[in-house]
Computed example of a mutant assay.
Amino acid sequence: MSADEFDPAIERLFARTPPMPDAALFTADVESRLQRGSRIRYAVLGAAGVVGGAVAAREVLTIRFTPESGEPAAVVGHGLQAASLNAQTALQGGLDQLGMGSLDLGSMGGMQMFWVAAAALIAVASIGLMRLSQEV
């Protein structure tokens, strides 16, 4: 048998693996393990969702919009207002140095700035995700 005839013969012999005698049992065992794992995962995710939903509902129902002056929420609120004012003053000073002093940031409220920042973060994350998917 020449070398040209020998290689295809070996390839034909090893092209198909012989069936194992316990192949059906092995397949059934693997499928049952996969099903058992998915049931546990569904149960854990469901329990986490119920607990998270209960905590979120409790927080929404117990919210107070007017904290009293001695409470920590009021102190934190005043601190955040001061920090926001300082940041806005510093930003306005930087814009004055760049020659864009007429740009007024005082007209945007805190919630509007939050949504602008959130939209910017979502845009940056989307661009990063697109670049990452193109590299793969």
Rank of each mutant, 00 (worst) to 15 (best):
L105N: 09
S126D: 08
R131A: 11
R64H: 12
G93F: 02
M111E: 13
M100S: 13
E71V: 05
S84D: 12
A125W: 08
T89H: 04
Q97M: 10
G77T: 01
H78E: 15
T66K: 08
G101Y: 01
M111L: 14
V116L: 15
Q112I: 12
I122E: 05
Q88S: 07
G79M: 08
S84I: 01
T66L: 11
Q97D: 07
A119V: 04
S126R: 03
G110Y: 05
I63C: 13
L98W: 00
V116T: 12
L98C: 03
A117M: 12
G77Q: 10
L132Y: 12
A125M: 14
A123C: 08
F65D: 10
G94R: 03
N86M: 14
V124P: 01
A119M: 11
L91C: 09
S84G: 11
A117C: 13
S102M: 15
M130F: 11
L121V: 09
A119S: 13
A120H: 06
I127N: 04
S107F: 04
G110I: 03
S107P: 01
A82Q: 11
G106A: 06
L103F: 03
M130W: 11
G109H: 07
Q81W: 06
I127Y: 04
A120I: 09
M100K: 13
G109S: 15
H78T: 12
S102C: 10
I63H: 14
V75S: 08
S69W: 06
G94F: 03
L103I: 14
G128W: 06
L98G: 00
A73Y: 05
L91K: 04
A87K: 03
G101W: 03
G106I: 01
L98N: 03
F114Q: 13
G99I: 05
G99L: 09
S69P: 07
W115K: 06
L80H: 06
A120R: 10
A120F: 06
L85F: 06
